[in-house]
Design a protein around this nucleic acid. Structure first.
Lengths: 165, 165
DNA sequence: CGATTTTAGTTGCATACGCAACCGATTCCG
DNA sequence: CGGAATCGGTTGCGTATGCAACTAAAATCG
């Protein structure tokens, strides 16, 4: 059986994409752990809130943007709330909805994580690309990302974003 | 604080890389599950064995190439062995070493997984890149991958590869 | 308005995984 | 050779996460 619609070039691209991602991800997580910091899941959730207007989001919005299932997010928010990094606030206009709101302490933690995260991105990923290459890479990735965004049942995931300076 | 050694372009590339990977990965896993097939972890391990000479590898080699910790691999191999997809064989020359050996049934399963996996790669990833783009992408990724390979304490990971036709 | 359906979030349960401690086998050295 | 250090693999334990079932609140419809 051959590979209909999947030329060898594309397959090779996928393989490297897949391997490199796992390796880099593991390396960054290891750096965070070594520094006694929370993992990227926490960062992603906190950072999404940081970006959001008024630093608050509905649970399900946050789930989607933090690349988690709704139940996964519920648990993550439980932990973040216990650490006072966010607060839950029920929505006054719709009793079903809960908002997660980033606290100042949450912002602090975000600022502690970021230097280590940034260093990891630089070391494991960015160091190997010139400016032009990075630009081209971003262009190619954006085609893939935007295609995924439009897919109907985008199954959970959407981690990471940017950083609070 | 600014971003030393991490220009905005590179950061943007990273963000898209990160988001797209999780989304694609989740979508492929969902497809596999919907088809009643095992997950990519199983595929990765089986496929590594498939590629290996005589279809066998030491546990720790397999762990590394299947992107798992040693303990994670022990458990995965337990399950694969229970399903008769592989066999454990102790090494005659070194009593500490165990070899995982792919069985014919393991190859069968590999062949069942691949079409779905391939379709996922094509749909979620390859469809968005021209041949030239895929080639350029592979080139950029290879720089990142090979840099990671040489890193000393590569923490676990190395999933996926190619496919058995 | 009351019953049904839908929506948002949570909880029970199962699974996958890593770290650290451990065990037996091997190798290193005095 | 014999004890100590090392290596390969496994096991105990904790954690992260998803799915399916559930609850409460809204929306829809007769």
């Amino acid at each position: 059986m051959k590979q209909p619609n999947l030329p060898e070039t594309h397959l090779e691209a996928w393989r490297r994409y897949y391997v490199s991602f796992w390796r880099i991800f593991a390396a960054i997580e290891a750096d965070l752990q070594a520094a006694g910091l929370p993992s990227l899941s926490w960062y992603d959730a906190l950072y999404e809130l940081y970006l959001a207007p008024d630093r608050h989001l509905r649970m399900s919005e946050l789930a989607r943007s933090a690349l988690l299932s709704r139940s996964g997010l519920t648990r993550l928010v439980d932990k973040l709330e216990k650490e006072k990094l966010i607060e839950r606030k029920s929505c006054p206009v719709d009793g079903r909805v809960q908002h997660a709101v980033l606290t100042d302490k949450g912002v602090e933690v975000l600022r502690k994580i970021w230097p280590v995260y940034r260093a990891g991105i630089a070391k494991y990923f960015a160091a190997h690309l010139s400016d032009d290459e990075a630009q081209e890479f971003a262009r190619l990735m954006s085609k893939v990302v935007s295609a995924m965004e439009q897919m109907p049942g985008a199954p959970a995931c959407e981690k990471n974003k940017k950083l609070p300076e």
